[in-house]
Every structure is written in C-alpha cells, then in structure tokens.
Design a protein around this nucleic acid. Sequence first.
DNA 1: GGGCATGTTAGCAC
DNA 2: TGTGCTAACATGCC
Length: 274
Amino acid sequence: MPELPEVETIARTLRGELGAPPLLGRQISSVHVLWAREVAHPEPDVFTQRAAGSTVTGIRRHGKYLLIELQAATPMVMAIHLKMSGRLDMVSAREAFTPHARVVWSLDDGSALRFEDARKFGRVWLLDRPSALLAPLGPDALTVEAEVFVQRLRSRRTRLKTLLLDQTFIAGVGNIYADEAAHRAGIHPCRKTASLTDSEVVRLHQAVQAVLCEGIAANGASFDWVYPGGHYQENFWVYGRAGQPCRKCGAPIMRTVLAQRSTYYCPTCQPLDR
DNA sequence: GGGCATGTTAGCAC
DNA sequence: TGTGCTAACATGCC
C-alpha cells in the first residue's frame, strides 16, 4: 500500500486521530520478531530486549518512513518502512500471529501492534536517532516549499517521472502519486527536467501536494489484495486506467514503462513536445 | 506458467 | 560525478 498518503494515514490512525484505539501512550510489554533473518535491525535479540518496557511517546513520518518515538532509560526511535506489501494494524493479542506477521509488539493493555508483510521487503529499525537513516532523503513531499522544490529540480537532469520517484529529491512520492501529479500538472512524465518552464515547475509542485492531500483526505488508496481502508483509487485520473477515456479530455489513457515502472498518462493533456 | 505488483538498492556502463 | 539500466529481494494474485 505505501506511499506518503498511506503512511500518513497509518500515523494518524496510530495516534488515535481516526477513531481507533491509539498506539500513542501504550507501553510495549514484549516484542516478537517472526522473520529473524532480515526484517529487524539490529538483530532480533537486541531489538526485542531494547524495545520491551518502553512507552510510545510520539508517532511521526518522513516520506514513506513511519517514526515511532519510544521513551525508556534512553529515548529511541523505531523506524518502519513498509516497502511494497507491508501493513501495520492494532489488533487483539489473539489476532496478532497471522501467517504473514513479521513483527508483533505486545502492549500493556492486551492489544498488539502487528507488522504483516507478505513479500518480506519491509524493514524495522530501532535507533537512538533516525538521522543517519533519513539523511539520504530529500525534504518531505507534503511540506516542501515551492522555492526549495524549484531549486532542487533545477539541479537535476533526468525525466520528470524518474525525478518524482527519487526519494533523494523529495521523499514520499511513489508510482501512483507520481503519475497522478504529472497528469494534474499537465506535463508528460517523459519530459526532461531541463525542458520544464518555471511556470510548469511551480504547477508541478502544486500538483504533487494537491494529489498527496487528496490521498490523505481519502485515507489513502487501496486496491488488490494488499491494503483495505482507503478509497482514493476511486479518484484516480490516470493510474491503472490504460485504454479508458481521460476524465478531462476523453482521449484514451496510455501506458508505457519508465524508470522500470508502469506509467500512465494522457497524450492530449500531457503532450511530449512543446 | 507468465506477467504483474503502491519500493529500494547494488553493480555496472557511459 | 551524475545518470540510467538491469537484476535482485520474496511472494501472491490474475
């Protein structure tokens, strides 16, 4: 599921802002690492021992990373990246140990936080501070200022779609929101950054933040078997709509492959030459 | 069985 | 040094 709006929705859920019982304020009584080979850093013994007994004092997000602040003898941060198929859910202790559960945090009220990940790409880290982990990332896509966005874009020479997916440019945009933002801005995803006019770059910045905000307002997008909950998929203008009419101009949406990812665009609303 | 998948990264070529 | 391409990670769905 996880691009910025989906991770933001999880953060809000775990803070208790969407009505569900919060993780915020709970104490972790024990940790169970169920896929020992890779999922947790540091190694499971150290991870479980250090996290047990700590209390959740904050839940933040940068790009696609969820950051859970823990208070113990020394403060720590648990960073979680869901990659392609990870999910995080508050469940009862009884429901916690499902076939794809990779890490389970048992909590002081008898509930549990469960990290499920069918494809095993997701990772969790327990850190004194997350600065080294986050250092390569660009500013968060939701809050990056227009001037910073323009300045960073002007220092890159690549195609628009490649740039939007590059987490060192801005952090949080993935394949869906990249295509939706490019369509909203009326810019072909294959355009070279150097060819973009100043007004196009400003439009792109606004489009990125608009589609991310809409995604958050819809509690994210969900489709196929991975993630239930959000409904932004009902509002896609291009993603996954190859052959269907553009909701703006009626021309059939095209699919191509760019930066090794499926890329959807409207050939009329997003002309390549200008 | 083949193709596809909301993500990232190492290795290599230019 | 920056950019781009491929393969790899591991699994499930259609």
